[in-house]
């Protein structure tokens, strides 16, 4: 029969020297194994001892057991810590080796840009309105003050199905339809959608393209409000350092009319090659809604006024992503589509 304290000393020495988990498990089995462990056996034999010795030895044996258990746990923690410390070396992998391809598809860049534009303008309280792409002559032209024979008509050379029916040249007809439907301002809408003009395809324009127009009709609207709205939109899309400039221009459906430019993102307006030394990049048109157009939409211009603006989604995407040929957007080439 061994002496518990000698047993403890022996066990603790073995534990301290155990190089790893296997050795520790062996030590644990040798001393604490349920049937044949040396400490276990000591405890099992206590029953046969005289009562006087029983209490003292029992206490000593239990202390030995606790001491060995504690030493085992401590040594295990020590070994685990050492293992984790070496993990970076023992389990090193080649982090540059690629993972398996996810095979995820891509959402079209024009969808992404349109979504961004909608999100920005919805944050100002504008709602999306949609309308037909095949329009009547009245909605596409007459209602917008572009009467037959108007010299500006050549800017909207259109595809016709009959003298009455054509592919819309802009999303402006949706403005008229929205005013007629909503009837009573305030009206804050945006009208994304496809448009068509009879222009031969080239790097900067196509016979089909996509526009977003905005329309705000309320009381006491000003050119300043229009400028602020454009600036908020442009800064939200391109960054807070961008500036917006409005230049007087002419559209039959707005008075006054403007084109709006955004400061060049490369030179910040100083003039560089990419903005053709102008410092500004043309984005779209805008203006205060012509009173006759309000009347055509059923709105009383003596009570309400408003502003409208429009631009090509492709143009926005070209500015944002450095696309230099508009045709790429409509050519379903995966080598292009997968870049976004």
């Amino acid at each position: 029969m061994s002496d518990p304290s000698a047993l403890t000393t022996e066990a603790l020495a073995a534990i301290a020297q155990a190089p790893g988990e296997d050795a520790l498990a062996k030590v644990e089995l040798e001393y604490l194994g349920r049937k044949s462990g040396r400490v276990s056996r000591l405890l099992a034999n206590i029953g046969q001892l005289p009562p006087a010795e029983k209490a003292a030895l029992g206490k000593a044996a239990n202390e030995a057991k606790r001491a060995i258990e504690a030493a085992l746990a401590a040594r295990r923690a020590e070994l685990e810590q050492a293992r984790l410390a070496d993990l970076a070396e023992t389990e090193a992998i080649d982090v540059t080796f690629p993972g398996p391809p996810l095979g995820r598809g891509h959402i079209h860049v024009l969808t992404q840009v349109r979504r961004q534009i909608e999100t920005v303008l919805e944050s100002l309280g504008y709602q999306v309105e949609l309308g037909p792409e095949v329009e009547t002559e009245w909605y596409n032209f007459e209602a917008l003050n572009i009467t037959a024979g108007h010299p500006a008509r050549e800017n909207w050379d259109s595809f016709y199905f009959s003298p009455e029916l054509l592919l819309r040249a802009h999303t402006s007809p949706v403005q008229i339809r929205a005013m007629q439907r909503i009837k009573e301002p305030p009206i804050y809408i945006i009208t994304p959608g496809r448009c068509y003009r009879r222009d031969a395809p080239e790097a900067t324009r196509l016979p089909y393209f996509s526009q977003v127009e905005g329309l705000a009709v309320d009381r006491g609207m000003t050119v300043g409000d229009m400028k602020g709205t454009l600036l908020y939109m442009i800064q939200s899309l391109y960054g807070a350092d961008r500036k917006v400039r409005v230049r007087p221009s002419y559209f039959p459906f707005t008075e006054p009319s403007f084109e709006f430019d955004v400061s060049c993102g490369i030179c910040g307006g100083m003039g560089c090659k990419s903005c053709r030394h102008k410092g500004w990049l043309e984005v779209g048109g805008c203006g205060m809604v012509h009173p006759q157009v309000l009347r055509n939409g059923g709105i009383d211009p003596s009570q309400w006024n408003g502003y409208a603006w429009g631009f090509g989604i492709e143009r926005m995407a070209m500015l944002k992503h450095d696309v230099d040929d508009i045709r790429l957007f409509y050519e379903p080439d995966l080598r292009f589509l997968e870049q976004f």
């Binding site: 598809g105 959402i107 909608e118 999306v128 068509y196 089909y208 379903p332």
Partner: peptide, 28 residues
């Protein structure tokens, strides 16, 4: 009211997850 585009967003995500890439092709 969510725009048509917004309502189709889920569909676009499902299709992208299934490996489909979106195109815009001419209507003419």
């Amino acid at each position: 009211a969510p725009s048509m585009d917004r309502r189709l967003d889920d569909g676009r995500e499902v299709l992208a997850g299934a490996g489909f890439t979106e195109t815009w092709t001419p209507a003419l």
